[in-house]
């Protein structure tokens, strides 16, 4: 549905394009952060840490232009939803970038420690998280509600991976107390990935909201946190 003022359409197109661009940068940050953990590459890790600033700047610029559009055009209904959701998605993406940066920060000390077999599990969890993020950005770009709902329902898989890694890492630290340092770093990396998964579901909620005009609900399937009884088994 075109507006009488054609430049308003253009504004909306541009705002949403900026979201996709921020998403692209997020994907790159996350994939490089994971690569820096897996390949024990501190140089790459530092690149990610520096790159995160660009994401922050993009978020600021987007917020500014959304505020300007709201003030100038006073949009209602679907257009207003698009703009509100754009602001929320942008700040969610910015947080995802922060978490990716944090993963890279932890990759630096890990790169000088000896290789841990646990990084395979982390790499797998990272791959799943990255694919979910990529899918939700596609869902946003093509307004695919089905895909958004599916991602929203699938996040428990990432929760389950996190719980399994938690268990694995604790067992690993119990076996050899010299590995507690490495273990703690790996645990935080896994936790960051789990948070990214949660943020991803928030973006699917936004996509649903843009298209349907109502919230997706709050009965999302979640993984149960692991107990600690297994340590004494």
């Amino acid at each position: 549905m075109a507006h009488i003022v054609a430049s308003f359409d253009e504004d909306l197109v541009q705002v949403q394009a900026r979201i996709s661009e921020m998403g692209g940068l997020c994907e790159e940050l996350l994939s490089k952060a994971l690569q820096s953990v897996q390949e024990r590459d501190p140089v790459l890790a530092r690149q990610v840490i520096d790159r995160d600033r660009a994401l922050d700047a993009m978020e600021m610029a987007l917020e500014e232009s959304v505020v300007k559009i709201i003030a100038l055009r006073q949009p209602v209904a679907a257009d207003l939803r698009v703009l509100i959701a754009a602001m929320k998605i942008a700040s969610t993406l910015e947080r995802i970038g922060d978490l990716a940066k944090n993963i890279s920060k932890r990759a630096i000390p890990l790169s000088s420690a000896r290789p841990a077999r646990l990084t395979t599990s982390i790499a797998r969890m990272g791959k799943t998280t990255l694919a979910q993020l990529s899918d939700v950005l596609n869902a946003h770009a093509s307004r695919d509600v089905d895909l958004a709902v599916q991602i929203w329902n699938q996040d428990y898989e990432i929760d389950e991976m996190y719980n399994a890694i938690f268990r694995e890492v604790v067992t690993y630290m119990v076996e050899d107390s010299r590995l507690i340092g490495i273990g703690a770093q790996l645990m935080f990396i896994a936790k960051n990935l789990e948070r990214i998964g949660d943020h991803t579901t928030h973006i699917s909620e936004m996509v649903y909201y843009i298209v349907k005009g109502e919230p997706l609900g709050d009965d999302r399937p979640k993984g149960e946190p692991t107990g600690v009884d297994f340590i004494h088994e």
Partner: peptide
Amino acid sequence: AHFAHLIRAPDFV
């Protein structure tokens, strides 16, 4: 549609 919806890789953009 805007090209960034199709390919959003930062280098490409």
